[in-house]
Computed example of a mutant assay.
Amino acid sequence: MSTRVLAVRIHPVTGEPGVELDAVAVAAEGLAGDRRKRAAVHLVGVEHGPTTRANLVVTGTAGELDALVGRVIVIGEVELGITRTAGNCAGVYADVLRPGVLAVGDELRALGES
């Protein structure tokens, strides 16, 4: 799967539009400036990008993201553990396993894949 980050968003205030960023620092609690929601990070595929409040929109599909549940992925310097699908929302939720910086254009790589 050759998947890249298309958009990085934070949502600092409930009910207000998100803020698009080129790059962001990611700590154990989530993206810098974001308010904590149901998980540290929320990822969605490109088909759901415009209609969700997800943190990361990627070029992959919803099905490709769903297949990553239980896996560890790396985006930029950040290592994420994909914990579950987002339930009523599109996409998947992730915990931050290794903090760092990620940016638009970074490749999403599942550990164990070449």
Rank of each mutant, 00 (worst) to 15 (best):
M1Y: 06
M1N: 07
S2K: 12
S2R: 12
T3L: 14
V5F: 12
L6C: 08
A7F: 02
A7W: 03
V8H: 04
R9F: 09
H11R: 01
P12E: 06
V13N: 06
V13F: 05
T14R: 15
T14K: 15
P17R: 02
V19H: 01
V19S: 01
V19F: 03
E20V: 15
D22C: 09
V24M: 09
V26N: 05
V26P: 05
E29D: 13
E29P: 10
L31K: 04
L31A: 05
L31Y: 08
G33H: 07
R35Y: 11
R35H: 13
R36H: 15
R36K: 14
K37T: 11
K37P: 08
K37M: 13
K37W: 13
R38H: 13
A40F: 14
V41H: 00
V41G: 00
V41Q: 00
H42Q: 02
H42V: 06
V44F: 01
V44Y: 00
E47S: 15
E47T: 04
H48T: 01
P50V: 09
T52E: 11
R53T: 15
R53N: 11
A54M: 03
A54W: 01
L56Y: 03
V57I: 12
T59W: 07
T59E: 10
T59R: 01
T61E: 11
T61Y: 01
T61M: 10
T61C: 13
G63D: 15
D66W: 11
D66Y: 14
G70L: 07
V72K: 09
I75M: 02
I75G: 01
G76N: 06
G76A: 10
G76S: 08
G76R: 03
E77D: 15
E79R: 12
L80V: 02
L80N: 01
T83R: 00
N88E: 13
N88T: 14
C89M: 14
C89S: 14
C89H: 12
A90G: 10
G91R: 00
V92G: 00
A94I: 00
A94F: 00
D95A: 14
D95L: 11
L97V: 03
P99V: 06
P99R: 08
V101M: 11
V101R: 06
V101A: 09
L102W: 08
L102Y: 06
A103M: 09
V104I: 12
V104S: 04
V104W: 02
D106I: 12
D106V: 12
E107T: 15
L108C: 05
R109L: 15
R109I: 15
R109W: 11
L111Y: 10
L111T: 08
L111N: 03
G112I: 10
E113Q: 13
